[in-house]
Design a protein around this nucleic acid. Sequence first.
DNA 1: CTGAAAGCGCTTACAG
DNA 2: CTGAAAGCGCTTACAG
Lengths: 329, 329
Amino acid sequence: MKAATIYSIAAELGISGSTVSRAFSRPDLVKDDVRERILATAAARGYAPNRAARGLATGRTGLIGLVVVDITNPFFPPLVGSIERAAAGIEASVLLVDAAAHAPAEPGLVQRLSSQVDGLIVASSRLPTADLKVAIGATTPAVLVNRAAAGLASVVCDNSEALRGAADHLVELGHRRLVVLRGPAASWAAQRRTAAIRTWARSAPSDVKVIELGPFDAVFESGRDAVPDILESGATGILAFDDLMACGVIAGLAERGVRVPADCSIVGCDDVLLARMLTPPLTTVTAPFEELGRHAVELLSEVIAGAPRPANVKLSGSLTIRGTTAPVR
Amino acid sequence: MKAATIYSIAAELGISGSTVSRAFSRPDLVKDDVRERILATAAARGYAPNRAARGLATGRTGLIGLVVVDITNPFFPPLVGSIERAAAGIEASVLLVDAAAHAPAEPGLVQRLSSQVDGLIVASSRLPTADLKVAIGATTPAVLVNRAAAGLASVVCDNSEALRGAADHLVELGHRRLVVLRGPAASWAAQRRTAAIRTWARSAPSDVKVIELGPFDAVFESGRDAVPDILESGATGILAFDDLMACGVIAGLAERGVRVPADCSIVGCDDVLLARMLTPPLTTVTAPFEELGRHAVELLSEVIAGAPRPANVKLSGSLTIRGTTAPVR
DNA sequence: CTGAAAGCGCTTACAG
DNA sequence: CTGAAAGCGCTTACAG
């Protein structure tokens, strides 16, 4: 059985295809009872407008391309979820692209993608700014998440204040030697987080010492492998780039019989699902996933609609104190 | 500047649109040097075939709809990644739909989706079989992952043997009272896992006692909340429906001063990222995510191509012994 | 409020 | 191997 079209249902009702089309695209332009009948028989025939045809006619695909560096990183699932929820609100679907699944072809990837979507949301890209702009292209509406680049719309989570709060928190607990585990050199978020701690360090009490380690890949193993250096540093307070690394540190520490938070305090960043599941649960900086996603698609709609200049929205993370920070012994 | 089309580049080269079209869709039908020139100027003009137009003409969208119950559940990210990798191999993109983000409209959701994709991969759906079939529709090619239903292609991970191995493992360690935490009643995987343990229990040593608890939602909190009942049961060996619940049990046990694996042994299921990150790392049943994804898109291609009867592939999980199981004290 | 008609950018038999 | 032409299923000025 062939799929129903505006014409098949128009024929069935003895009206024109234009009217059927309008019943879906501009329902207000169709007389009530006619619209009712159209919708009824459409439902009966399982008719839904063909997206490709509509796309060809309008130039809109109804698709948002979402590029994430690695869907396997627990930071992304909640972000993807919130973006989808927001996209559903504007009748758009999400074309997900996991850059890790296509590596190392990220630039070409984005380019191919951009021809089939109305706009792009690029989350935490590690591409150099110039490459990123080339990849996105001058004409594709785009918004960056957790990354800023001149001339592009973006929504970022600024954790600076929360991170400084975390450092204060450790100092208040009596920790005097802190180690900060840096994230990937190419990560915009990592640079910002390191910068925030450095700023804090400049006005920290004079007996407080901050040691930087890294940069590291943002994975569990980096945290675990950093443990010997952490121990050697004599630090008792640890600020990890993200929850994954924090988790690795905790594991590495446990292997050596160092207990958290009895012997060592540690704070993560992002507050991914994992953080709440550790025993004890992780003290961390909570990211506003839901708003991040909502603003991303909101901004994208504006850019698609032709907003004059790219907006940049900045949200804030907040310190969530849980079980991995405690007074120094 | 308007986007390039086959006609704009045809005009530029003084040839026909048909030839430009063929250079992309059937390159073998175009003389070498002509194709070279077409490809060169296409690249120069940033031309890529318009997917909507191609879709309208061919009836193919190049899109695979992927429906997951909840992207936030760590089972899905690795599956999504492997499906995307496999989809890239057949030039398809993945339209991700997180049912949780659209709840409770799952059926209608799938229906709308099916009009814009070539086929559907539905992972771990909790819908009753009848509803599921209605949602997918008679005409949309589909494959189910971790779920079987008569008449539909599927790829499932059978953990029965590994689960029986896990139970044996606990018994060998000296555990005599085992509790099994059941997963959601509507989950096909949960039913299979419970059934596997029941089968095992029938031929277990006579001094071994198996206590069932649940069904539970497959979340961390279920595991933690089940702890009082677990303790009351007197069991020292725990088989949790999945890693998330196992993780919750560990947390709940810790709150009560019960140590894992010193006082209690526990095994999860799936081997999500989280499992390796716990301290100690979780003994669990490892799911073959990569193959699950590969087979899912392979099967879907076959169904799209019109394979006569739906295939059902069954893969196996394997027991991975890590740190949460130990001899009973 | 409704209809006839052109056009969106491809693909693909058909003819050469 | 290449071109002219029809057709995929919509949308949307335009006319009524």
